[in-house]
Computed example of a mutant assay.
Amino acid sequence: MSVVIIIPARHASSRYPGKPLVDLKGASGEPRSLIRRSWDAAVAVTGVDRVVVATDDERIRDHASGFGAEVVMTSTECRNGTERCAEAIANLGISPEIVVNLQGDAPLTPAWFVEDLIAGLRADSQAGVATPVLRCSGKMRADLIADRMAGRVGGTTAVFGAENQALYFSKEVVPYAAGDFGDDQDSPVFHHVGVYAYRPEALASYNEWGEGPLERLEGLEQLRFLERGQRILCVQVESRGRQFWELNNPEDVPRLETMMKEMGID
């Protein structure tokens, strides 16, 4: 098996309990759950052999099975999506070439983000992990800053160096840049898209390391790799006119619904 997409989903989120089952209305007004929309995004990706929802909650299992998803049950002890993906692969008893973690809070992830991510990891034999980054327009940067000023935990930003090797990820808006940018102007900030592609050996090592201090402070699972010296490849992706945002807070629901309406996504 070449590529497997795992969609980790838990009900007991401290920031937004029950988030995977929250309904989002598309352009036609039809409501679909967040986990269903994430599943739809995953099955649209080409070159993938299998898509599986990984959860520790029977409500999510029953709901996902109801719309035809394959589901694997995982432990309630998983602290984040990467740990859940590692356990899911072990429980499924498979060893694919690449495991993709398409987190269940990013239903607007275009298929080409994931396709470019897979191609990027295949092309870089030194990287055990890859993740997409999207250059922020002035408006997106301003939205991220507004979330932080309002005390909301919004999107994550990424800083990377030579050969697109990740240097750091943060819930703060980094790097700092003086001044403002026009709504449609490119900014120096890159939004980290919450998707990962792992080689199986990197994924297996993750659970053995245990939580790191930076990971704990920021609440960002990928920092465990950086703290252990694991190379993370940042793959720059293009929006192609698509709007992108993740569901982090209840206030994001109307924002996502507006975006879907504007883009004609049912």
Rank of each mutant, 00 (worst) to 15 (best):
A178F: 15
C85A: 14
R152T: 00
A9C: 08
T55H: 11
P20K: 00
E218D: 02
S125D: 14
L134Y: 04
T55P: 11
G66V: 10
N101M: 12
E246I: 14
G219D: 13
D143A: 14
I6K: 03
I94A: 01
L21K: 06
L233A: 14
V48H: 11
I94C: 05
V45W: 09
G194F: 13
R79F: 06
L21F: 03
P17C: 07
A69W: 08
A142Y: 04
R61K: 14
S187H: 06
A127T: 07
E83L: 14
E246W: 05
K171T: 15
Y196E: 07
I35Q: 01
V3A: 01
G229H: 03
V72P: 10
C136R: 04
P110G: 03
A204T: 13
A142P: 03
V253M: 06
C85W: 02
S170R: 03
N249P: 05
V253W: 02
D116A: 13
A90R: 15
I118E: 01
T131H: 04
S2T: 12
R36Q: 15
L223N: 01
L256N: 08
E58N: 04
P188L: 11
H63A: 15
S137Y: 05
N207M: 09
A197G: 06
A41D: 06
F169W: 12
G104Y: 09
H63Y: 12
C85V: 09
E87M: 09
I232L: 09
M260K: 01
E97T: 08
R135C: 05
L134A: 07
V3M: 00
V193C: 11
S239M: 02
S2D: 15
E215A: 09
R10I: 12
M263A: 12
R50C: 03
L223P: 03
E221V: 12
V195R: 10
L121N: 03
V159T: 13
Q236S: 12
T55W: 10
D116K: 13
M1Y: 04
R37T: 00
T131D: 01
D180K: 11
I145Y: 04
S187P: 10
A27P: 07
D56T: 12
G29S: 12
S33T: 15
L121T: 08
R122P: 08
P8S: 11
V237P: 09
T156V: 15
R240C: 02
I89L: 05
G128E: 02
V159R: 09
T258F: 09
M263G: 05
G104L: 02
F113A: 04
M73V: 06
S38R: 00
G179I: 11
E87G: 05
A88E: 07
R152W: 02
Y176W: 06
S125L: 07
